Every structure is written in C-alpha cells, then in structure tokens.
Amino acid sequence: MGSRAYYGPAVQVPHQPADRGYLAWTQPPYALVAGTSLPTAGTLNLRRLRRVRAGAATSIVTYVTAAGNTLTAGQCFAALYTAAGALVAQTVDQATAWTSTGLKTMALAGGPHSLAGGDYYVGVWFQGTSGPGLVRSGTIATPLTNAGLAAPNLEAATANTGVTTTAPATLGTLTASVFEWWFALA
C-alpha cells in the first residue's frame, strides 16, 4: 500500500460576496491588480454585476486607489441600474469622498432598495480635473474583456456622456470598455 501525504486541514478563505456581507460583486478582491483613474469627465462608466442575490441594497462599495483632482461638488456619483438599463437608484454626491483613497461605501439615496435576483449594472461618473482612480482587475484587450458578448449585455462598458448632477433614467447605447472596475453591492 502506498502512503498518502497529509497537508493539514483545508483553509477556508471567504471568496463569495455573502461571506463579506455583500449581495454581489463584480469580481473577487483577490483578482484585483491595479487602479486606474476614471478616464473622461461626464461619461458613465459601467460594470455588470452578475447573479445578484435578491435582497435590500443600501450602498455601492468600491476602492479608490488615487484621489480625484478638483472634483466638482454635486457632480460625482455612482448609480445602480437593472440589466435592462433602468435606473434603480443614485448615490449621494461623492466629490468629497473621492478626494481620498480607501474603501468607499456609497449610500444609495432613498434606500434600502428591494432588488429581485438577477443582473445589474453599476455606473460611475465624475466632473472635475481628473477622476478618482478605482481598483480593477488587469487591463486587457477590449475584445477579451467582453469576449462572446454584445451590447446591451457587456461586462465593462461606457454609456451616456455629458452626465453631471443626475443619473440618466435609462442607459444609452453601451460601448465596450477595457476597464474592469471593482464594485460590490451591500
């Protein structure tokens, strides 16, 4: 009979959104590698949340890796959309919060919001000299980020432009993006 190696008990590392108190996230935190500033003022940058558990959503969470510069008060927000592109809720203004780094829990105005299980989009935009740097997974070629997908079902995209104080009620045409930002829904 051969012997078997024993390596000790398996270590359980929380890797599901619920393990950290979230309804969903775009990807596990251990998959994150860098931060990149939101590229264009007034452009809605989107990231899809897949298989969101049904429940009450109160906030969107992200991690700011680099402070935004000269952000315009009342014109820096995140918003939650259904997969069909309908606005669920917008956060309170983030102009002050995004001028420092760290984990940001952005309250959804009028919350909590009752969500059915399914897919959603998180969108973020800013007005100012330069946008905050948000944590993301590795930047790869746009065709790979959205491989096998087409609008309106992209993983990473941009949509509406010229966004300032209010989230669009519905998403405009989605354009593929390379930025796989990290967001969680709490």
Results as ranks from 00 to 15, higher is better:
30 Y>A: 14
106 M>H: 02
133 G>D: 01
14 P>G: 15
30 Y>L: 13
165 T>P: 01
129 T>Q: 14
106 M>S: 12
152 P>S: 08
145 T>C: 12
178 V>H: 04
156 A>S: 14
54 A>D: 06
100 S>A: 15
44 L>W: 05
177 S>V: 02
182 W>E: 08
35 G>P: 02
153 N>G: 13
61 V>L: 11
15 H>D: 11
85 G>D: 04
85 G>E: 09
17 P>S: 06
64 V>L: 03
114 S>Y: 03
104 K>C: 10
1 M>R: 11
179 F>K: 07
104 K>N: 08
77 F>R: 12
102 G>S: 01
135 V>F: 04
144 L>R: 14
153 N>S: 14
169 A>N: 13
59 S>G: 13
4 R>Y: 11
91 T>E: 07
51 R>L: 11
45 N>G: 00
166 T>G: 07
99 T>D: 10
150 A>E: 07
158 T>N: 12
12 Q>C: 08
33 V>I: 10
17 P>W: 08
169 A>C: 04
23 L>Y: 02
81 Y>E: 11
89 A>F: 05
139 T>K: 10
57 A>S: 05
107 A>N: 13
48 R>I: 08
71 L>D: 10
78 A>T: 06
12 Q>T: 15
26 T>R: 08
58 T>F: 08
109 A>G: 12
16 Q>F: 15
80 L>Y: 05
66 A>S: 15
161 T>Y: 00
100 S>G: 12
153 N>W: 02
51 R>N: 15
84 A>P: 03
22 Y>A: 09
110 G>T: 03
32 L>M: 13
95 A>C: 04
157 A>Q: 07
54 A>K: 09
95 A>Q: 05
133 G>F: 05
167 A>W: 08
158 T>K: 06
142 T>Y: 05
